[in-house]
């Protein structure tokens, strides 16, 4: 596979962006993605943003997983 991590876009300058991952900051290339804005989360691999992370999808999956957890906790 490929080691890729979600990071938040802090600043955009031309084809590059400064991204933040848990407090560390790294300059990455935006050459492979369109329409990225400050505040977006991107998936970073070998110094390139590969794609935008869909935050709504992420929240939705987590909500569903936590629902499952609550249901399991409620079961006798």
């Amino acid at each position: 596979m490929c080691l890729a991590v979600p990071a938040e876009v802090i600043e955009i300058s031309g084809e590059d962006a400064l991204v933040d991952l848990g407090g560390i900051r790294k300059r990455v290339s935006l050459m492979l993605v369109d329409d990225v804005a400050v505040g977006d989360y991107v998936i970073v691999h070998v110094g390139f943003a590969l794609t935008r992370l869909d935050r709504d999808e992420a929240q939705e999956s987590l909500a569903l997983l936590r629902e499952g957890l609550a249901a399991a906790g409620a079961a006798p």
Partner: peptide, 12 residues
């Protein structure tokens, strides 16, 4: 530290 963890995450 959070940043040490993050750096390790980034670099594998």
């Amino acid at each position: 530290r959070g940043e040490v963890r993050a750096a390790c995450e980034l670099l594998g």
